[in-house]
């Protein structure tokens, strides 16, 4: 991994839904460079070029994960969940304005 430029760090931070100050971006630039050793270590591992060539994974049992039936169930915690919303108006979660 090459040393990322500050602009690239800021672009990645926007993709992460974060806004960084310049000082924070510089600190992250150093940290990420240090962490890049993790990525370079993996370069020795060969991987198949196509998805189809990937061998089936080993797993501890042969059971399939059961899926829930897709049905509506009554849930008595609605009010408790709404209480945790950042802002609310009666039974609704108030979200910031999207369009003027």
């Amino acid at each position: 991994m090459e040393r990322l430029k500050i602009d690239e760090i800021k672009k990645l931070s926007r993709q992460s839904g974060l806004r960084l100050k310049d000082k924070e971006a510089v600190k992250l630039q150093e940290d990420l460079e240090e962490l890049s050793c993790y990525l370079s270590k993996l370069e020795d591992i060969a991987v198949p070029e196509t998805y189809e060539a990937i061998e089936e994974g080993y797993w501890m049992h042969k059971n399939k994960t059961p899926l829930r039936k897709d049905r509506v169930e009554d849930f008595d915690q609605k009010e408790r969940l709404r209480r945790n919303a950042p802002k609310r108006n009666q039974n609704y979660v108030t979200v910031p304005k999207v369009m003027d």
Binding site: L12, S16, G17, L18, R19, E24, L28, P96
Partner: peptide, 27 residues
């Protein structure tokens, strides 16, 4: 704006280690 609320809330809400991992994950 809505983008602003997301970026500011996450920027203020998450600590350095979480931010570092999120950005490297996105990289």
């Amino acid at each position: 704006s809505i983008i602003d609320v997301v970026e500011k809330s996450r920027g203020q809400g998450f600590g350095d280690e979480v931010k570092r991992r999120l950005i490297l994950g996105n990289y």
